[in-house]
Simulated scan of single mutants.
Amino acid sequence: MSKPSSRNEPMTIARLAQHLGLAEGTISRALNNYPDIAEKTRQRVQKAARELGYRPSSSARRLARGVIETIGFVLPTCRTQHSDPFLAEILNGLATELSLHDWDLLVTSVPDGHDEVDVIDRLVGSNKVDGFVIARTRREDARVNYLRQSGVPFVVQGRTDHPDDYSWLDIDNEQAFVEAVTYLRGLGHVKIGCLGGDPTMNFAWQRRSGYLRAMAEQNGHIGVGYLIDGITDELTAFRAAQRLLAITENDRPTALLCVTDAVAIGAMHALTRAGLRVGEDISIMGFDGLPIGRAVQPALTTLHQDSYEIGREAGRMVLDLCTNPPSAPKQTLWQAKLTPRASVNPPAQSPAQQNKGGF
């Protein structure tokens, strides 16, 4: 048995073979537990590899295992140029979890003239990924329909209208908005408006449904113009809130429930521009629990979902699907946490109510 020529040189299969007096092919097969290698030889090779600090290259390891160890994420097509901080947090958590297991995350966007399915199909056809994580699902989602038929492992952050036969991780959006309305009603708000998102997006539809159900069950008042759909960013929220403020003061909502924190912050800017006090003249509540909500003035009441941990959990789920496929889809529903802050308070009394106080 020869000795390695230098401690400074990286240990390779060739050097291991020289050290042990074995063929390189035997070393490679022993390291990858091929059954045609005698147990005594396998143990000898693996013991020497540990002692000498041999680590297989990622490409060699992947070739030996027949996997690519890469998860794909195709950025959803966006109708606006505004960033999505919730999606960025999910990607951060997902990348972190994958890296802990020496897997990679391939993030790609959609070229002009194509859609997400085109890109997913190209990645599947070129064998560049082992699986996918899908986010921001629509009620009827072509990406999910494609992956159902592809045989490629995938996890959905969110759900579609028919989520029974695939793995997903979602927040109970409808129940979260029921709890939000319940909280506002408990403070004394009756006239509660809602800035909703794109109703083709399932999370937005679920939150909208929660608002309507809770307002009906709890005798809330939805005036004309109180529910505005299609609000997707701060700018559209700013304009929608201006429309609400055009309603006669006695008829306008005393509280505003917003589909995301970004939408809530846009509405807050509109109120401030109009000379109104957020949390006093009109209360505002968001959804997501983004860090910026603590920094705005007043601090934003929100329904918190840990988007970073959602990304981590999606990573754990897709790794499990790729390495140890379960017999049935794994489906996880988390609850949002209502986080009260200064942007929501009991409704201000009208001058007539104040006069009835006596004192």
Rank of each mutant, 00 (worst) to 15 (best):
S2A: 12
K3R: 05
S5W: 02
E9W: 06
P10V: 11
L16K: 11
A17H: 15
Q18F: 03
Y34E: 13
P35N: 10
I37T: 08
R42K: 14
R44W: 03
Q46D: 01
Y54F: 12
A60I: 10
I68M: 06
T70K: 06
G72K: 03
T77C: 04
S83D: 04
P85M: 10
F86W: 10
L87I: 12
E89W: 00
L98K: 04
D104S: 07
P111W: 03
G113I: 02
V117F: 12
S126I: 05
K128P: 04
V129Q: 05
V133Y: 04
A135C: 13
A142F: 08
V144W: 09
Y146E: 07
R148H: 11
Q149V: 09
F154Y: 14
P163F: 11
W168M: 06
W168R: 02
N173T: 05
E179I: 04
V181W: 01
R185T: 15
G188P: 09
G188D: 10
H189G: 11
V190P: 00
R207M: 05
R208F: 02
Q218N: 12
N219I: 00
G225C: 10
L227H: 06
I228E: 05
A240M: 01
T254D: 05
D288A: 14
L290M: 10
V296I: 13
L300I: 01
S307W: 07
E309Q: 13
A314Q: 08
G315L: 04
G315Q: 02
K330T: 14
L333T: 15
A336M: 09
N345Q: 15
N345R: 15
N345H: 15
P351S: 03
K356D: 06
